[in-house]
Design a protein around this nucleic acid. Sequence first.
DNA 1: GTCTATATTCCGATAGAC
DNA 2: GTCTATCGGAATATAGAC
Lengths: 201, 201
Amino acid sequence: MIKTDTTEQKIVAAAKKVFLAKGLAGARMQDIADEAGINKAMLHYYFRSKDKLFEHIFAEVAGAFLPRVMTIIESDKPLFEKIEIFCSEYITQVMQTPYVPIFILNEINRQPEAFIKKMFAGKKPPIDVFLKQLQKEIKQGIIKPISPVQLFVNIMGLCLFPFVAQPILQMMIGKEKTKFEAFMNERKAQVPKMIIASIKK
Amino acid sequence: MIKTDTTEQKIVAAAKKVFLAKGLAGARMQDIADEAGINKAMLHYYFRSKDKLFEHIFAEVAGAFLPRVMTIIESDKPLFEKIEIFCSEYITQVMQTPYVPIFILNEINRQPEAFIKKMFAGKKPPIDVFLKQLQKEIKQGIIKPISPVQLFVNIMGLCLFPFVAQPILQMMIGKEKTKFEAFMNERKAQVPKMIIASIKK
DNA sequence: GTCTATATTCCGATAGAC
DNA sequence: GTCTATCGGAATATAGAC
């Protein structure tokens, strides 16, 4: 069934592209209109203001980015297996939208107070589930004692940092897209291996 | 000897603060002038344009950020010791200016082409020295075979990611500055330990 | 809903007095 | 060198015809 995108869908897609590339302050409403192939006035008709449009996009991008990950973390799989699946799946997922991490981290840094308020308005971070599993396994003597938050940051850093530093990375390995993809594919197995080695008794 | 800052020094300090907090696109010349306690026109008198001022600041910030690290990497110390010193020193150094990593990474992502051109204009990345040392030690069978770039990204990711994700991290450990500092101090020993464990035979 | 034209605000940059 | 005042353009937002 052939269904042309609605104007609103065109706007959202265009705004997502422009905001991800330029950030809130750097993006121009004209750029978004051009990208969507419509008139500038339409943006205001559908979203009232630039800030409102950005909020919509940010919520959509961040909303699609975080939860998918958390379902893995919340599952009842054994710890090591969970770490393996998480790293592999997470890297695979982020490779679809490599600009998202730097975008989210940057906008959070630009408006920490506004963002944190919004996060706490929603449900509490599901990371707690993971942290509790860790504490339990440490107590049982299955893994080495380590601060759960330290471990969590290790995992996220090893998975996400290459995306955040992508341009610099590509100065070292070559600027072809395939080079970067091969590099990240290698990490899907390597990162969990390293993480597990660091906590295995 | 009591020496009041010159106007230029005031401008540079203020611009650094504002650009680091807001980025190039988000910063306002008026904000910088206010922060420096001078008039907006003075900014143009000393630096001609916003872009020129930003270039000056970026060069200064990035210039102070990268090279100090590289002297450690270029030294002729044994590999493991070098990794230990590097991680500890690097984290210590960045803790003085925790906003710098996200600032640099973000601006590079916003203008990859312009930045890369400027980097290649200067001397070649001294990372090569480190990469060659690794290849040598792998050949000699001292450490496990690993892609030098992968290892380098592991080190940088574990050291820098916490700074890049600082606001999110502080949602987990508490928003007090001392909490974050304690967290990072713990990493000074933990990160190199983890890195070395991953390559030791 | 969609467009053109216009209003309004904001911001980088300059002119000119001191 | 430093300021006030202002210009000119750019960017967000609105008015109003179709």
